[in-house]
Amino acid sequence: MSSPPGLPDSRPEAPRSRSRMIVGIVIVAAVLAIAVVVSFALTRTSDSARPAPTSTASATPTASAAATPTPSASSTSPPASSATIDVNGDGFTLSGSAGETFSHTWAAPAAPAIAALTEAFGAAPTISEDLNDGNFHRGNFTVYSWPDFTFYDYLDTEGGKDRSEVDTPTYVSFSASSIGDIEITNEFGLRIGQTLDEVRQLAPDSGGDTVPPIFWFVRGRSTFYEDGVRSYGVQVDTDGEHVTSITYKFIATGL
């Protein structure tokens, strides 16, 4: 039944109109959902494109610095210079690695020389006695021994000569040309371990005909009671093939 002419139609909408409304709502909802998804995707892309945290970047310089070599102590520190004991006819001179020197003459008191040698070798000597056992052609001595180096000091005994009257107040003998960082030198170029031929090339005064061979150098310069000064010659002992010890001491001309 229709409404009277001139009045609006009050009948309910047809089902077709309601369907169109529902479809429209669904479309709007779908558009909103797509917008949300696109927005989330853009946000994720932006996050992934951001640079890595600064802590990761700082790790590279640290590793590079660690890889830089550090100079070793041995490459920057100069090698230590060695000390020397230079023995000659009048005594010996000890020169330290820092440039300090000490000189001993054969007639001088022994105590300063023993103290200087103790400091140079870094250890106290072993002390013993070398007695003449009634052989009055040689004196009695207190012996101060370090490895490969021996210092002899005249020992006053009852009935013996005064120190000022003996030909050998002090003397030394050594069986190595290098002791620790100390080089032991002499005016002839003699060294422990040299062969017999090498010793002969240095022109000894005499010797070489005993078994084992013993050589003497400048034994004629040995002085006895000459203004308190003592000058010595050199005795070179061997084992038959090589030099085993070098001794600076008074050598009588008759030998």
Rank of each mutant, 00 (worst) to 15 (best):
H137A: 10
K161I: 14
I127K: 05
D227P: 05
S175G: 12
I127G: 02
I34K: 03
S164W: 06
V218K: 07
T126Q: 12
T253F: 03
P12N: 00
I182A: 04
I192V: 07
A30F: 12
M21L: 15
T142M: 01
P61Y: 10
V28M: 10
A41Y: 04
F217P: 00
A67S: 06
D148Y: 12
S173Q: 05
A115D: 04
S48H: 11
A30E: 06
F151S: 14
A203S: 14
V218T: 03
S231R: 02
G89M: 13
D205W: 15
N186V: 04
R219K: 09
A65G: 09
L94N: 00
H137G: 05
D209Y: 11
G134S: 01
T68S: 15
A107S: 13
V37C: 04
I22W: 15
V23Q: 09
P212G: 11
F250Q: 05
L32F: 14
A203E: 15
G6L: 15
G228C: 09
S245F: 06
S46K: 10
N140M: 05
S64H: 14
A203H: 11
T60Y: 15
A65F: 09
R50N: 12
G6E: 13
T253N: 10
M21P: 08
P204M: 00
D156M: 07
V28S: 10
F217T: 00
G193P: 02
R219I: 06
F174D: 01
